[in-house]
Amino acid sequence: KELVLVLYDYQEKSPREVTVKKGDILTLLNSTNKDAWKVEVDDRQGFIPAAYLKKL
């Protein structure tokens, strides 16, 4: 599985998104959309803007 590093805090703005903190390391589920990547956070799945993430 692929991991990503969170570069900036992000507060979810819709039910399809998830809230993350800078420095979190998350499982990347889908990065086919260049604008928003799907990740898993504490058994929740949701989207975060790709600009907030860096592949490890």
Rank of each mutant, 00 (worst) to 15 (best):
K54W: 10
P15E: 11
T32D: 15
T32W: 10
V41S: 09
A50Q: 06
G46N: 03
L53P: 01
D9M: 04
S31L: 04
P49S: 05
Q45H: 08
F47N: 04
L28H: 01
Q45S: 10
T27C: 10
K38I: 15
V39P: 00
D42G: 15
R44I: 08
T27I: 15
S31M: 08
A50T: 09
K55G: 03
V39S: 00
F47K: 02
L28Q: 00
D42K: 12
Y8H: 12
D35K: 13
W37Y: 05
K21C: 11
K1S: 09
P15H: 10
D9I: 04
Q45V: 15
K54M: 14
Q11F: 14
L29E: 02
V6E: 01
L7Y: 03
T32P: 03
L7I: 09
W37P: 00
L5D: 01
L56E: 02
S14N: 14
K54V: 13
V6A: 06
T19V: 04
Q45G: 05
E40S: 10
S14M: 07
I48P: 03
V6P: 01
L7A: 02
D42F: 11
V6G: 00
N30F: 07
Y52R: 03
K21D: 01
N30A: 10
K1L: 12
K13F: 09
S14R: 07
V41E: 02
Y52Q: 03
A50K: 08
E40Y: 07
I48A: 05
Y8I: 09
E12W: 12
L53R: 01
D24Q: 15
Y10S: 02
L56P: 01
Y52G: 05
R44V: 07
K22R: 13
L29V: 11
N30K: 06
D9W: 05
K1F: 12
L3R: 11
K55P: 09
L7V: 06
R16V: 12
I25P: 01
E40N: 05
E2P: 12
K55S: 06
K38N: 06
K55Q: 07
D42P: 05
E12M: 15
V6F: 01
A50V: 11
G23T: 03
D35Q: 12
A50I: 08
K22L: 04
P49A: 05
K54F: 11
K1A: 10
D9S: 08
K55R: 13
Y10R: 03
T27H: 10
N30G: 07
Q11L: 12
L3T: 07
L26Y: 04
F47W: 15
G23L: 03
L56I: 13
S31I: 05
Y8W: 13
D9E: 04
N33R: 12
L53K: 01
T32A: 13
D43V: 07
L29F: 03
K34H: 11
V41M: 10
V39R: 01
Y8L: 09
T32V: 10
K22H: 05
A51S: 13
G46P: 03
I25N: 00
N30I: 08
V20L: 04
V20R: 00
Q11N: 13
K1P: 12
L5K: 05
D24S: 11
E12T: 11
E17I: 05
L28M: 03
G23E: 01
L3Q: 10
V4N: 00
E40H: 06
D24E: 12
K1M: 11
L28I: 04
F47P: 01
V39F: 03
K38A: 09
L5H: 02
Q45K: 09
L29G: 01
D43Q: 11
R16L: 14
W37I: 01
D24N: 08
P15F: 08
L53A: 06
K13P: 06
D9A: 06
L56D: 01
K55N: 05
T32I: 09
A50W: 05
K13T: 13
Y52A: 09
K22P: 02
P15V: 09
S31W: 10
L3H: 08
L5E: 08
N33A: 09
A50Y: 04
V6Y: 01
T19A: 05
K34V: 12
K22A: 13
V4C: 11
N30V: 08
K34E: 11
P49D: 04
G23M: 03
K38L: 15
D24I: 06
N30L: 09
G46S: 06
Q45W: 11
E17T: 06
L3M: 11
K13Y: 06
V4H: 00
V20N: 00
A51E: 13
Q11W: 14
D24T: 10
E40A: 13
K55V: 11
P49C: 08
Y10D: 01
V20W: 11
L26N: 01
K22N: 03
I48N: 02
S14V: 06
P49V: 06
R16F: 15
I25W: 03
D35C: 15
D43G: 15
E40G: 07
Y52D: 01
K54P: 02
D43W: 07
K21I: 06
K13V: 08
G23Y: 04
V18R: 02
L5G: 01
T27Q: 09
L53H: 01
K13Q: 13
P49H: 05
L26D: 00
K55T: 06
L29I: 14
R44A: 05
I48Q: 02
K21G: 03
V4K: 02
Q11K: 13
V41F: 10
Y10H: 04
Q11A: 12
P49F: 07
Y10W: 06
E17V: 05
V20K: 00
K34I: 11
F47D: 07
V41H: 09
A36M: 15
R16I: 13
K34C: 14
E40M: 14
K34T: 11
A36D: 08
L3K: 11
A36T: 13
K1I: 12
L29Q: 02
Q11T: 14
I25S: 00
E2Q: 14
L29K: 03
R16S: 14
P15A: 11
L7T: 03
G46I: 15
V18A: 04
R16E: 14
L5T: 04
S31T: 09
